[in-house]
Every structure is written in C-alpha cells, then in structure tokens.
C-alpha cells in the first residue's frame, strides 16, 4: 500500500543555514504522526515543504505517491495545511470564511457547500459564525481554522502546533476532533511542543533536532527504549 507520506533525504538551506538537514520518515494512511522538537529545529520548515509552499534544496517528499515539486498541484488537491498561529480574514464572518475557503479548495458546487456545512458543524461556534472574525477569541479563531483545515476531507492534514496558545478546554476539544477524524481514515501530520498532547494523539512520533531525525517510533517504544514512563524525559535525553 502507498504511504500517505514518504520523506527521503529532505534538506532545506537558507544561504549558509541548514534548517532541515536530511530528514527521512514516512507516515501510513490513517496515522497521526507528530514531529516533536525544540523551537527552530526545522519542524515548520518541514511541514511547509510538504505543504508545497517551500521548495526543498535536496531530497524529496511524496504525498500518496505524488511528488511535492513535480506534482505540486495534485498534492494541493489532497492536502490541507494549518500554519502555526495562522489568522483569518478579520472582516469576514466565520460563515463567510468557511464558504470562501470551501470554494477555494473545492470550487463552487455541492461539494463546497457540503464542506462549508461540515466546517460549521466541526467548529462548534453555532450562532457566533454570523459574527466577524475580528470579534473572536483566540480559541474560537483556532477552532474555526481547524474546522477549515479538515472540512474539505483532505487525505493528509498538516497541522502546525494545532493547539498552541489555547486553554485546556479548547485544546481538548481540538484533540478530540483530530482523533475522531483520524479514526475515520484521515491522515495527520502534526507538530507540537506539548508532550501530553503528542502522547494522547499520536500513533508515532519523530523527534528532530537541528534539522535531523533523532528518533522515530511509537511513544510506548520510545519510553521503553529510554527506560522511563515520561515522554518529556525521552525528549530531553534525545535533544541534549
């Protein structure tokens, strides 16, 4: 079976700085795979290369067998990307934003309308969808953005720090949504700092530092390897 994601020797350089220094990993369909690592180690750059908005300096990334450079347009048809701390169009209402994004990703038609309706349901914002986004709290905006990212039913959803800056309740609701969608067959590639979140969500995790993969396995296997019950301890031992 074709992997949902295959990363081979992925490199990204900015002049002399190597943000990603030869990553290799793969993600199977329906899996929630998490990239974990300190700030500035290349997680977001990796996600952007997979989302086709940055070009790798070397190596390759394939989404369901489609190359992110050669088949960029086809890749964009089956993925959805949620950037870290992304905003939305402040002068649109939540509903207008979902309608707009549904049309951008699926063009006009019944599929777009169905996706927008699904987005409304997933966001859980109810009547507030009629209000302008500039009136939303950070949690509400993030729920709207997550709903936008998954409402189009992408085969691979790429979420950069999906619960960053959210309170416990909002973060919990978002994690539940991701888990439920993965159970329905959607593949997720996420990055996060939150070890509790990672352990709750992910089938496997990839720990990266300075653009390199230090370890890639299930949380249980990693904890066993480092003889600890704490995933944070694994992370610290790997990155120090």
């Amino acid at each position: 079976m074709t992997n949902a994601l295959e990363i081979t020797g992925l490199v990204k350089k900015y002049k002399d700085f190597e943000a990603v220094a030869g990553l290799d990993f793969n993600v199977t369909p329906g899996e929630i795979f998490a990239l974990v690592g300190p700030n500035g180690v290349g997680k977001s750059t990796t996600l952007k290369m997979i989302a086709t908005i940055l070009t790798p300096t070397a190596g390759s990334a394939a989404v369901f067998g489609l190359d992110t450079i050669r088949d960029a347009h086809a890749v964009r048809e089956i993925i959805s990307y949620l950037p870290e701390e992304a905003g939305a169009y402040k002068n649109l209402t939540g509903r207008e934003y979902l309608d707009f994004m549904a049309m951008v990703f699926l063009k006009d038609g019944p599929r777009a309308r169905a996706a927008a309706a699904e987005g409304e349901r997933l966001s859980g914002l109810g009547a507030r969808l009629g209000d302008k986004i500039k009136t939303y709290s950070k949690g509400m905006a993030r729920k709207l953005l997550l709903a936008r990212a998954v409402m189009i039913r992408p085969r691979l959803a790429i979420l950069d720090e999906p619960t960053s800056g959210l309170d416990i309740v909002n973060a919990y609701e978002i994690r539940k949504t991701i888990k439920a969608l993965a159970a329905g067959g959607m593949t997720f590639l996420i990055s996060s700092h939150n070890m509790g979140e990672i352990e709750f969500l992910s089938g496997r995790i990839g720990v990266i530092n300075k653009g390199r993969m230090l370890a890639c396995d299930t949380p249980a296997a990693l904890k066993a390897r480092f003889a600890t019950e704490d995933l944070e301890e694994v992370f610290i031992k790997l990155t120090q």
Partner: peptide, 14 residues
Amino acid sequence: KENKTLETLLSSPL
C-alpha cells in the same frame, strides 16, 4: 503574509 492567511491560500489548488 503577517496573518499567515497567505500560506493557507498557497497550499490550496488555486
């Protein structure tokens, strides 16, 4: 660019 709404649009098939 600042709100990163552009990144979302750039990752779309548009």
